[in-house]
Design a protein around this nucleic acid. Structure first.
Length: 262
DNA sequence: ACAGCTACAAGGAG
DNA sequence: TCTCCTTGTAGCTG
């Protein structure tokens, strides 16, 4: 099955904060950016002007970064899915929800759960646990992602951020057990949150290069595909946003290669 | 005042 | 042996 990406979309630099703003502002800023760009280069998109319908997929590209973003679920459907997940998903508690950092033990600043095919395991911060069996809602979302992308997944990591205080630090999803050719599909439900990519060579005090971060806002019902080699070169994070008061559930579907062969 | 960002704090895993 | 990962917080900026 092929992917239903619309080819030849406008190539965005995505180096500004434009995508993190409200939709109305976003349109205005995109126009401004486009005008700036047109001073420097020929408009590659004139042939696309005739497409009057909304473009479902947005290509997000930078050096070594390749993502596709789209609204997968309309609001009503996304609302329903969020409610169902709130009832179905059972999150790790107690010791399983703790992590040791710099000698101190903390509760992770979010809730986590892992679901997938029988026998699959997931290692987080040195602790390995096995996936729970798929729930009906997780299965149906997984199938919707597969229909849209043509990719199959055998595992999902569920992260629940109760409000803007809950967050996730900068990291890559480059575990060895992940299929390096399979994109990671990230479905967002609930409160919209900022999502930030940073190139590995542009991090820290002695960063050798100055590469602008790529900032997105992940909307209710959205799907973000992180294609290879994005996770080799780019770290991502979900930063604290104190103004966000409502919960968000994120599902990252992955394909884990079976570690042991018979 | 405060949201947002960076640097940095140890020790274990691979 | 070396590199990378984990989060909270001090300190700075706008």
């Amino acid at each position: 099955m092929e992917r239903f990406l619309i080819p030849g979309q406008k190539k965005r630099s995505c180096t500004s904060d434009a995508l993190t703003r409200s939709p109305r502002k976003k349109i205005k800023l995109e126009k401004d950016e486009r005008m700036k760009e047109e001073k420097d280069e020929v408009d590659e998109d004139s042939a696309l002007a005739e497409f009057s319908h909304p473009v479902p997929w947005q290509k997000i590209e930078a050096e070594g970064l390749d993502c596709d973003y789209a609204l997968l679920f309309a609001k009503e459907e996304a609302d329903q899915l969020f409610k169902q997940l709130e009832n179905e998903v059972v999150y790790s508690t107690g010791e399983e929800a703790k992590v040791q950092v710099f000698g101190k033990v903390y509760s992770i600043p979010r809730k986590q759960a892992t679901y997938g095919d029988a026998g699959l395991t997931y290692t987080y911060s040195g602790v390995t646990r096995s996936a729970c069996p798929w729930t009906p809602t997780l299965e149906s979302i997984r199938d919707a992602v597969t229909k849209t992308t043509g990719q199959t997944f055998n595992f999902v990591l569920v992260n629940r951020y109760k409000d803007g205080q809950d967050h996730m630090g900068e990291h890559r999803d480059d575990e060895k057990e992940l299929d390096p050719l399979c994109p990671i599909a990230s479905v967002s439900l609930g409160a919209a949150r900022d999502f930030i990519f940073r190139h590995r060579d542009a991090r820290g005090k002695h960063s050798c290069r100055q590469i602008e971060p790529v900032k997105l806002e992940l909307a209710h019902g959205s799907l973000l595909l992180m294609n290879p080699p994005t996770n080799t070169f780019w770290y991502h994070s979900l930063p604290v946003r104190k103004k966000v008061l409502l919960p968000r559930i994120n599902l990252t579907f992955r394909r884990i290669v079976l570690a042991s062969k018979k």
